[in-house]
Design a protein around this nucleic acid. Structure first.
Length: 116
DNA sequence: CCCGTGACCGACT
DNA sequence: CAGTCGGCCACGG
């Protein structure tokens, strides 16, 4: 199946059938984050049942094969900042801002309103 | 199986 | 506040 045809959660699973169980769970959890909201690497780790694997979660999202279908740009650090290389990070920041999430000093204020 | 590599995190200086 | 440190963990070589 082609990336451009991926829409539903089921499509995501199908498209990622050859990826590891861990990575699939990360992309699936991220896929559920609604527009206008964000989550954190920690929360994703908790949701998939691996509370101490935030670092591995970040690694998985770093190689996200379904961007922007799987909205990895909506996953931020616990302090609301955007991780990774400078350019890529600011790109993701602009992307979430465009989706309606306000930022201050390059960071998202993790209020209940925006935190998924 | 050991080892290096990170889009991490909380504690601490 | 900005930096550093140790702990953590899946993945690929």
């Amino acid at each position: 199946m082609r990336k451009s045809d991926v829409r539903t959660e089921r499509d995501v699973k199908e498209y990622l059938k050859d990826w590891s169980e861990f990575e699939r769970s990360v992309y699936l959890a991220t896929f559920k984050i609604p527009e206008g909201k964000v989550s954190t690497y920690s929360r994703i780790a908790e949701v998939i049942g691996k509370p101490k694997a935030q670092r591995a979660v970040a690694n998985a999202l770093h190689k996200n094969p379904l961007y922007p279908i799987v909205p990895c740009h909506r996953v931020v650090k616990s302090d609301g900042g955007f991780g990774g290389e400078k350019k890529a990070a600011s790109d993701r920041r602009r992307h979430v801002e465009r989706e309606g999430v306000p930022t201050k000093d390059g960071k998202v204020s993790l209020s209940k309103r925006v935190l998924f």
